[in-house]
């Protein structure tokens, strides 16, 4: 029997592609064509494409510091979150299964607490005890770590559950390994894919966070982009587009490497 052409499947794939690609194409035209917005129509499709949006932004002296600040914050936040969450997830999966609901609820708090409440609460609480949390750039790391929790916790937990951590730990102990060796040589390598995914998601959250940064008056990349939108709309749109494309590419690559290495654990994205 001949297989029927999967009309519906392709229709869905097509719709999704349009849904994601159309805004990106529109962004690209807006950012990269030196044509007045009112004239962006079918007949101007190929006229006056230019990278001046990028070059203007790169030339702006406050752009690179903002990018660099966001990158540093991203890396440090990811490091902090992993140091905190990997052992937590391991502990949950090995001995404290009944604590899982508590951690799950705690990790969704950032969805519930609005940024303004977070910032006001934190500054009210810590202004006297730990003034650096309100006044320095790195003071945002604890806030950003919280903000990443819903994504990183779920990703790490899914990765941990995909392996039989209990048995692997017992096997390690039986072979003579101590807790540190088991964590570093058995458990973490087994969760490698989900750790990479969690790190990437956390980094993406920090690179895109605007509300907290603007409330605390920090010049991060998103804060810069919002501010630059007034001065240089096309330039800031070009940067936004570049970030979007880069993010998607890294994501596709992550998924790829996961599939080609043929491993059983999944990238474990939060549902």
């Amino acid at each position: 029997m001949r297989r029927r052409f999967p009309v519906w499947e392709w229709a869905v794939i097509g719709l999704c592609t349009v849904f994601f690609a159309a805004p990106m194409l529109a962004m690209a035209r807006f950012a990269l064509q030196k044509v007045p917005v009112a004239l962006l129509g079918r007949e101007t499709l190929f006229s006056r494409w230019t990278f001046s949006g990028f070059t203007n932004t790169l030339a702006d002296e406050s752009f690179l510091p903002a990018l660099w600040l966001s990158t540093r914050l991203g890396i440090l936040t990811v490091a902090a979150v992993l140091v905190l969450m990997v052992p937590t997830v391991v502990w949950l999966n090995l001995t404290a299964n009944n604590w899982r609901p508590v951690v799950e609820v705690a990790s969704t708090l950032p969805y519930i607490v609005p940024p303004i409440a977070l910032v006001v609460g934190v500054s009210a609480l810590f202004r006297d005890v730990a003034p650096w949390m309100v006044t320095t750039d790195y003071g945002m790391i604890p806030l950003y770590s919280m903000l990443c929790l819903p994504f990183t916790f779920r990703t790490l937990d899914a990765g941990a559950r995909a392996t039989d951590m209990r048995t692997l730990t017992d096997a390690g102990r039986n072979l003579g390994a101590g807790p540190v060796v088991i964590l570093m040589k058995v458990i973490i390598p087994g969760m490698r894919t989900s750790i990479t995914a969690a790190a990437f998601l956390g980094f993406a959250v920090v690179m895109g966070e605007y509300a907290i940064a603007s409330l605390l008056l920090r010049r991060t990349l998103p804060a810069y982009m919002v501010e630059a939108q007034g001065r240089e709309p096309q330039g800031s749109m070009a940067v936004a587009l570049a970030l979007l494309v880069l993010t998607s590419l890294i994501f596709i690559l992550l998924n790829r490497s996961d599939r080609t290495s043929g491993r059983r654990d999944t990238i474990g994205l939060p549902a």
Binding site: T163, T167, L168, D170, A171, N174, G176, G178, P189, R263
Partner: peptide
């Protein structure tokens, strides 16, 4: 005595090989 000091080899009911090795 903790497991790692017992020098006992064990084969488990479930598959227990380290997947990344």
């Amino acid at each position: 005595v903790p497991p790692r000091r017992r020098n006992a080899g064990m084969v488990f009911q479930e598959y227990s090989l380290f997947p990344h090795m």
